[in-house]
Design a protein around this nucleic acid. Structure first.
Lengths: 148, 148
DNA sequence: CCGGATTAGTTATGCGCATAATAGTTATCC
DNA sequence: GGATAACTATTATGCGCATAACTAATCCGG
């Protein structure tokens, strides 16, 4: 494959990551959130209480990252952690009331961010974009696939 | 805008970032490089010696990040830093011979990564992908635009 | 039932990114 | 030309991510 094209693609992915994250950071800052934390809140809002290991899987990051993020979100009062009744190793994480309220606000920002991101992109292209990106992601994903 | 779609898009971008970077990390590790550093080497290989401020602009990151990355790459012997003759504030960064050799190997990996990323994607879609991603990036870019 | 393998979570450490604050240099404008 | 503004680079700090090493609990085969 042509290096010019390969570099254009890889660099485009890298820069999109940086800028999209930076924009998300700017939008989330007024809520006192850092990018990455919103994903945790949204996942809890979507799925309900869950184990940290499930969270790590859903967020696509490793357990140590979840440990630190949950600790900070707990300190901020947005989530609550309780020992799992049936497994003394695990701890179930769930949203607090303020966490749920925060998730609602994140949802609005998320819609605004998506609109902003897609400015000038044809509707047909936009409609296929999430699936296309997921294809690319699956192509470079070395994790054990999860079925859901 | 529909939250379902917005979340699908934002999450797809976030996950592509994570996985693409992780895959890049796995490919670069044998070379002793961490993801992000390859961009610096490739930029120097493409453009030649340049000032750190120019590097920060080209890489799309902030000067403090460049300071740390150049320090590590210099310790590894891949780049060289020298005071700029005409400006006592600036320091010019350039590739060493081993750095140039490393950049050549990164180019090969970069081609392989792009091929891997595009597996199963129609050629027509792939051809338009970099431009599409750059459009999305520009849409969320809050930096002062650079002309090049 | 017991001992090895798996699993959940944490700690320690390191990297790339960010922002804020600072020192030294250069440019600009009275 | 001298004060002021703008720029280059650095340090300090913090966050999200990673891997490696460790503890504690659960599971499972003999």
């Amino acid at each position: 494959m042509d290096f010019e094209y390969a570099d254009a693609l890889n660099q485009a992915i890298r820069l999109l990551s940086l800028r999209h994250r930076a924009r998300a950071a700017a939008l989330l800052a007024p809520l006192g959130l850092h990018p990455g934390q919103e994903a945790l809140l949204l996942e809890l809002d979507r799925t309900g209480p869950m184990i940290q290991a499930q969270l790590a899987d859903a967020l696509g990051c490793e357990p140590p990252s979840v440990t630190l993020m949950t600790r900070k979100l707990e300190s901020a009062g947005h989530i609550r952690r309780a020992p799992a009744p049936s497994d003394k190793r695990a701890s179930v994480v769930e949203l607090t009331d303020t966490g749920r309220a925060l998730a609602a606000r994140v949802k609005e920002l998320w819609c605004a961010l998506a609109e902003e991101t897609l400015r000038g992109v044809p509707a047909a292209t936009a409609a296929e974009l999430p699936a296309l990106l997921r294809t690319l992601t699956a192509n470079v994903d070395t994790r054990p696939a999860r079925d859901a």
